[in-house]
């Protein structure tokens, strides 16, 4: 709403909005700051905000104890892999539901979404046993498969809502122009849906990156992603706030930075395409 307001009103708005934003952001800011403190200053009373002895020692220590890069690559492979695999399966499904809708399309979509309501913990034991017998425990392939299935309903739903915004006449025009189904999806639908697909990809990378049930329960070391990395800090170990902060910062930084840079597409994706 571009409505004219008095400068005074705008100043009040600005102060209020920034206050709220900073309160919400403060835990993250505090963690990042603490990660640069010596352990003793991390728990000093009263707390120090900026006037501490800045150090990178915590990052060095954490990296020596645990090989950050290995966890990082596992996270990247699992998040990106499951998202891309999901996309390949979901694009044809979303095409079908968006452009050849049937009477049961809506029910089908709701059913897909409802599979996400299944409590993961309820099927943990069987999945664990299946994975064990297939040799998928603690493998990246296994996690990619699980996370793909976990997020498939969301990918399908998001793509479906984006595809539905594309007029069917354009696809019919492509058909009249001699395009077969492959050409229609590859040259017409996909390029037109790029913004929507980008949002879908971003959101799913975030969901997969942060998924912390299956990643914790189905990995030990080889395929362990950053969720596992950070969980090893869950029991207190003497003075450890600064190291915990450094580890936390390393775990969240990649996705935080990606999120900030792709904010626009992401906000669109966050709404799951359901809010225009």
């Amino acid at each position: 709403m571009a409505r004219a307001v008095t400068t005074r009103r705008k100043i009040i708005n600005t102060v209020a909005a920034w206050s709220v934003a900073l309160i919400l952001f403060f835990p993250i800011l505090w963690t990042i700051l603490t990660s640069f403190k010596p352990e003793a200053q991390a728990v000093s009373s009263p707390p120090v905000f900026l006037a501490f002895d800045w150090t990178l020692q915590n990052y060095i220590d954490v990296n020596e104890q645990r090989n950050y890069l290995k966890f990082f690559w596992n996270s990247v492979i699992i998040a990106v892999g499951s998202t891309l695999l999901g996309l390949v399966i979901a694009i044809p499904a979303a095409w079908s539901m968006a452009f050849v809708p049937g009477k049961r399309t809506k029910d089908l979509l709701m059913w897909m979404l409802s599979t996400k309501m299944m409590p993961a913990v309820g099927v943990l034991v069987p999945i664990y046993l299946i994975f064990k017998s297939l040799g998928l425990l603690d493998t990246r392939v296994g996690l990619v498969v699980v996370l793909t299935l976990m997020n498939l309903p969301i990918i399908v739903w998001m793509l479906y809502t984006y595809f539905k915004e594309i007029p069917g006449e354009i696809l019919e025009a492509a058909r009249m122009d001699g395009a077969n189904l492959r050409a229609e999806i590859l040259y017409v639908l996909t390029p037109m849906a790029v913004p929507g697909i980008a949002s879908t990809v971003l959101l799913n990378i975030i969901l997969a990156w942060n998924e912390s049930f299956w990643t914790l329960n189905l990995t030990v070391t080889d395929a362990a992603p950053l969720t596992k990395f950070i969980s090893s800090f869950s029991s207190p170990q003497g003075l450890f706030y600064a190291k915990l902060s450094a580890a936390s910062t390393m775990a969240i930084a990649p996705i935080l930075i990606m999120g900030w840079f792709s904010q626009k597409q992401l906000v669109r994706g966050l709404t799951f395409g359901a809010v225009k």
Partner: peptide, 10 residues
Amino acid sequence: VISPFFIMPP
């Protein structure tokens, strides 16, 4: 405001 959404639960 959006930032907390990016933080993994653990």
